[in-house]
Nucleic acid binder design. Sequence first.
DNA 1: CGGGTTTGACCAGCGC
DNA 2: GCGCTGGTCAAACCCG
Length: 556
Amino acid sequence: MATGSGLSNNSDRIGLFLHQPTVIDSFPADDSHRHHRPPKLKLELMKAATNAAAMTPVPTIQFPINLHDQGSDDKRMVEMDFFAHKKHEASNVSNVADKKDLTESDFHVNTGLHLLTAHSQSDQSMVDDGISPNSEDKRAKSNELAVLQTELERMNAENKRLRDMLHQITTNYNSLHVHLVTLIQQQRQQHHPDLKSDDNEEQDHSNTIDEKLEDNTKKHTGRRVPRQFMDLGLAASADGHSPPSSEGSPGNNVEGSAKESCDRGRDESLDNDGSNQGGPNKVARLSPMTIDDESTEATMRKARVSVRARSEAPMISDGCQWRKYGQKMAKGNPCPRAYYRCTMAAGCPVRKQVQRCAEDRTILVTTYEGNHNHPLPPAAMAMASTTSSAAQMLLSGSMPSADAQLMNPNFLARSLLPCSSSTVATISASSPFPTVTLDLTQTPNPLNLQRPPPQFPLMPHIFSQQHSLYNQSKFSGLHVPNDMGPNTQLGHQAQPPPLQGTLADTVHALTTDPTFTAALAAAITSLIAGGESDPNSAGANQPQPWQQMHQQPQQP
DNA sequence: CGGGTTTGACCAGCGC
DNA sequence: GCGCTGGTCAAACCCG
């Protein structure tokens, strides 16, 4: 992409104090308790804090931004010049204090904290050496501490201000993006009213939008603004509804954009009620999803997430227990479709369908529907999080079909599977239910997916940990570990979907959640490993659907 | 005997 | 209204 060339320099540093999280917030926001503490105790606390801080890694602040929709360099980590910023800030502090030389290590985690601890250690050393500071020294130290505390508060305030600024920038960017897309869409419809959806065209169009947006951003701001999954702004405006102008854009169907091989078979296999034969009114059936709780629940039940994976295993092992309740021959596919219901809890509404791709039977298509209403073992939580998050991404924007068509599938893939640059996500607008298809078969080296990769790009150890936990529990304790808690229960009924926020917010929350990405890694790893890897998973000791499929008479 | 699978029947939605 | 298709049910069957 031409646009990325000028912006892809990772050495560019943004002098913005972005992305609050651990670095700044590691220092207690509420430091009121310090104000009333005796100095001695305060010093001890500071010393303890120093020790704790010394064990904290150097804070290279990074956050993922989705710079482009194409190419391998689309996801970059922008390093914030934390040191430069904080050192500048603290230099003032050091001038006020005792002109102590500051190195970058002094800004280890919490600049103010380290400055304080430097003094506290100094005080402590004086005490240890048997030197009794006189009252004047004490008073001076107290003054210094007060100054430093004031400075800390000022820094915290500035941090908050910068965060608000970032939020404002993000919001502006989002609205600008929506506006631009709307204009481009209108222009496109004027010039090519009968333009049919095409794979390359759709991607080129998205790229064009992105390029224009980047140019626009550069033009107006003079610097690069992180695109934190703003692409979904295409699908949702600030109030969570789609831009009106994007409605009724026939021919912009993302469906089928992923790839052509097996597309027919996939569509037929996933559009369960033969909706492919359907006409335009299928799309109309999807349109406006209103955000009321009732319909939300119903829609969540209907939202589907398909996972296409190349696997010889009869069924991907997702850690759940499934009971087969039916099998049908689907039209256009000689391989029967098996219907499974989650049996980990009575009344769990989750179901899944397993079917081989008609044109490439090495591809296994698993379609999940619904959300678990019970705790999950870690191994199952991985896939459940993936699918429910994907479903939520699809639904939380409350996008009508036209907006779904606007959504860049590659962006979605990258949002859901940030570790895989070759994964393709497809949103089916022609299906009676909104369906996200995560295509894991698109890889430069398909063999990599047939065997578990030696090291998965995203924290493969998570899976092994979960797998180990899962083996230990053997379903005895299905409680979700606390650290895997609500974030990985996204979409489960215990936590209502964040329908009130914008889709971009939802996606941001999902994709910046470390447990979410960890769960993704685990899900994909287990998926890739297939049924051959997890002897404890449900279905491993059962007659396998693929074997059963072959037992069925084949359609002529 | 309990839990899972198989399989024919039934129902609903949709197109013609 | 009829036929087609997807989805589900439930009785029969299988298996450890």
